[in-house]
Structure formats: C-alpha cells, structure tokens
Design a protein around this nucleic acid. Structure first.
Length: 424
RNA sequence: GGAAGGGUGGCCGAGCGGUUUAAGGCACCGGUCUUGAAAACCGGCGUGGGUGCAAGCCCACCGUGGGUUCGAAUCCCACCCCUUCCGCCA
C-alpha cells in the first residue's frame, strides 16, 4: 500500500518506479482523486463545524429555558444537514476510488534493483558448489516412483492433479528436511519457531497483499477463510495492528507449515512430478525490522536460507530478480535456485524479499522510537528457508547413485534414524 | 450450537444524551531537589485528516458498519472479536 502523501511529494519518483515494473504512470490520476477527496472533506468539515457550534447554542438555550430560541436554532441546523449527506457521499466515493487503485498497485523496486522485463533479465549474484557430472541422472519422480514411495496416481484418485503421496522413507525424508531447517534457524540463526494457523481471515490476506489482487491464486474455504499460500501470511500478521518498541526489533520468526496454492495461472506448467503442487511443505522466515536495518537484514536472511543448501551440499545460484519479475509486495528479491541434475537446470527453491513498509501500512504495524515522538511503520521481510518439497527433489536428484539408489545427506541422518541410503 | 458478560489512548481503567476539552493511574519525556540515583513534587504526553508561511484554527476517531437526535463513547440495529459457563468434539 502506497502513501498518497509520499506520492504527492514525489510524483516523478513514483511514476519512475512504476515504469521499472513496466507499468503506466499513475501519479497524476491519484493526485487528482486525492484533490477531489480533499475538496469534499473541506466542504464537509465547514458544515460540521457550523453544526457543532449551533448544537452547543441549542444546549445553552435549553439550559436557560429559552425554547423559542432553541427552535429557531434547530431549524437552522435542519437546513444545514440537508447539504451534508451529499458531501459525505462525495468523500466516501473519492476515497474508495483512490484506495481501489492504491491497494492494487505493486511496491516500487528499490534503487539497486536491476531493471528488466521478466526472468530473462534477472542477474546472477553468486554461485555455490559445482554440478556433478551425472550422465545417468534421473528426474526425482522417476526415482520416487521406482522406489514405490512417490505416488501420483493414488493422490489423483482422491485429490486430483498436482498432489502427491509420499510413503515410507520419502515421507520420513520430507519430515527430516523440515525438522533440520527449523532446528537450524532456531538454534543457529536466532529465529523463534511459530506454529501458526493455516486458515486466516480476509484482513490477514490483505495485510500481506494476497488480497485483493491475487484472489484467484488462493483456496477459499467455507466460513470466509483462506488457506495460507505461505506461512509468510500468519508470521507477518503476527505484528498487525500493534505498536512495538524499538528495542524489540528485529523480530525473527520461522515456521514449518503446509502451503496451499491454486496455481491458477500455471496451467500446463511443471505438471510432471512434485515441483508445482497445490499443497507443499515450506519452512518460512519472516523478519520485522526498523527502516534503517531492513536492507542488511535482507542479506542476513538470504545467508540463513543459503546455509540450508550449503549444509545439504546442494549446488545453487542466487539471482537478484529484475524489476519486472518481482512479486507484488517486494522492493527487492533474491531467488535461490538449486541445481537439479535430472532436469539439468537450476530451479527456484527459495525467494527472499524485503517489502519495506508496504505490508506494514496494510497491517497498520508500527513501532515507537526511543527518543522521537509518534510512531513509524516497521519494515517486513520474508523468505523461504527453504521450500521442503523442492528440497526433497534437490536431494533426490543430487544424491542419486548410478545404481538407482539415493544416499541420505549427512545432516539428515540424525533425523532419519541413522539411515544412509534409500533403495538400491 | 445455547447462555451470560465485555471491547475506551502504548497499558490499566472511569464515564452510560449537552460543564468531556475522554477523569484517574501506569509507562514515557522535561524540570525542581540530590554528589549521583531513587522517592517526592511541578509540567508535558493519543491517532488520522483539513487548512495555513507560521503560531494556530478546525474535523473525525471510544471494536466495525448503519440508524435515532439539534447534539452520541453514552440510546437502537446488524456484524466482528474476546472472556466465562453449558453442549459437542481431536
């Protein structure tokens, strides 16, 4: 959510930011609507001021038992009140028109974000590890189905496409991955583990900006609630409508949850395997910071997410997303892409974004400064630390052996009863 | 699902048609006192908006949205949320 006052003060910066996202300028239209709103408010306030003054006089007259004077005054107010409803309506309409645009306008790219149209313009930031030469490499679903531990048919019979059933050692490995990630972030990175609701109300989805624009990407359930598409929603909304103190910041939350996405815009894409599912497990990282520290927190969060893949020893690269490829609420985003030998390509496994005060405005999440009057909006960050389903894919493909078995990564063995390999 | 009680500034809490300009307290900030601190005392201290060069003036806000009234935190209606009890239940 953008601040109309900031737009009024910086119309050219605002339009430049939109242009970087490939969007047409909006400042002139927004300022025009805000002018309309101001005109209506000013006129209304003049009427309200007059009404309040007359009402006080009526009270005074009644106290002095001057009924005649009271009646004259009441007639004055009655005439005045005839004009007020239309002014009120004009204000409501102008505000609604303004908000309709503001809530559906994406965040502006940060100054150091590469300008570009789509994913082809993303910039590689750095790499970790070297993809091994694996001419025998199979894709994860070939391995999983050969083990008889990854069942898409049974899932389709009960739930349809884009669901999977993991059995036995693969189910356990998924669980082990999630445990490993949460333990890493809580024990070594200072995050607090949160077990949040998976169902949230409209307001929470609005706060993190899934609503109103991305309604079709979500699953709604009866009772007017939504299945969370990511734990970013509940973890970020932890601070909605609160006033924190400066000393409490930064707050760092992590949570391992199921995530639900309709994948409405992805028809036909990644249909084979468990890369793109309606339901998947993800370990999420969320930080709440001051404006001064959000940029360094972003780098820190990326490093926390990277550590997961480093410990798993899976090769990856980090991409800085260009302005045209970033999500709606982001100022700046890093994607981590893991190497998948079976596909012979890098695929997204984590996305870390800094949102500035964009979500904080929507949630009304503020903090109080130690030696300054008033409150300021916090900054919010979120990142996958990391997607568990995709991490399972990366482990299967990178740890597969020529005999068709899969070695269990060292760091997962304690979580899998010391097991060292699957299949073979 | 049924019943009752309740949502007031950062927090606690009074007010239940017009001396409310939302009492009082806590916290916070400034000052007096003190070697320093604490205590005590004095003063300040909500949010958003309109207007103005400014000092200021004005409007709105007591869970949300409607309504009654010349005037609503206060009365009415609907909804949301919280607490307690009962029922059901992993």
């Amino acid at each position: 959510m953008h601040d109309i006052r900031w737009i009024r003060d910086n119309p050219e910066l605002f339009d430049q930011g939109l242009a970087k996202r490939g969007l047409a300028p909006l400042s002139a239209r927004l300022i025009g609507l805000d002018d309309k709103r101001k005109d209506a408010v000013s006129a209304l306030q003049v009427a309200q001021e007059r009404r309040n003054a007359l009402s006080k006089e009526i009270g005074e007259a009644k106290r002095q038992k001057d009924e005649a004077r009271a009646q004259v005054l009441q007639a004055d107010v009655a005439r005045l009140k005839d004009t007020m409803p239309s002014l009120e309506q004009a204000e409501r309409e102008a505000l609604a028109d303004l908000d309709a645009i503001l809530v559906s306008t994406p965040n502006l790219p940060g100054a150091n974000v590469p300008v570009g149209a789509d994913e082809k313009d993303n910039v590689e930031r750095h790499k970790f590890g070297t993809p091994k030469d694996m001419p025998f490499a199979k894709q994860h679903f070939e391995l999983g189905e050969a083990f008889g531990l990854m069942d898409f048919e049974a899932a389709a019979r009960m739930s349809g496409a884009r669901f999977v059933i993991l059995r036995g050692q693969l189910a356990r490995m998924e669980r082990a991955l999630g445990q490993f990630m949460v333990d890493l972030h809580t024990n070594e990175h200072g995050y607090t583990e949160i077990a949040p609701p998976l169902l949230v109300r409209d307001e929470a989805m609005f706060g993190t900006a899934q609503l109103p624009k991305f309604r079709d990407d979500q699953f709604a359930v009866s009772g007017g609630m939504w299945l969370i598409p990511t734990a970013e929603v509940p973890l970020t909304n932890l601070v909605r409508e609160t006033v924190l103190s400066e000393e409490e910041l930064p707050l760092r939350f992590t949570g391992l949850t199921a995530c639900f996405r309709s994948e409405a815009g992805a028809a036909g894409r990644d249909t084979r395997g468990m890369l793109r599912q309606h339901q998947f497990m993800k370990c999420e990282l969320v930080s709440i910071t001051t404006p001064e520290t959000s940029a360094t927190e972003h780098e820190r969060m990326l490093a926390c997410a990277e550590t997961v893949l480093k410990r798993l020893d899976v090769p990856y690269r980090v991409m800085t997303l260009c302005s045209g490829d970033m999500g709606f609420g982001a100022m700046k985003t890093y994607d981590i892409e893991a190497w998948l030998p079976g596909q012979k390509t890098y695929r997204e496994i984590s996305s870390c974004s800094v949102c500035g005060d964009f979500q904080a405005r929507r949630m009304n999440a503020r903090y109080r400064l130690k030696d300054e009057k008033g409150t300021r909006f916090v900054h919010t960050l979120n990142g996958s630390g990391i997607a568990v389903g995709r991490a399972l894919i990366a482990v299967l493909e990178n740890y597969q052996n020529e005999d068709g078995s899969v070695t269990v990564p060292e760091v997962l063995r304690p979580y899998m009863g010391g097991m060292t390999r699957i299949g073979g």
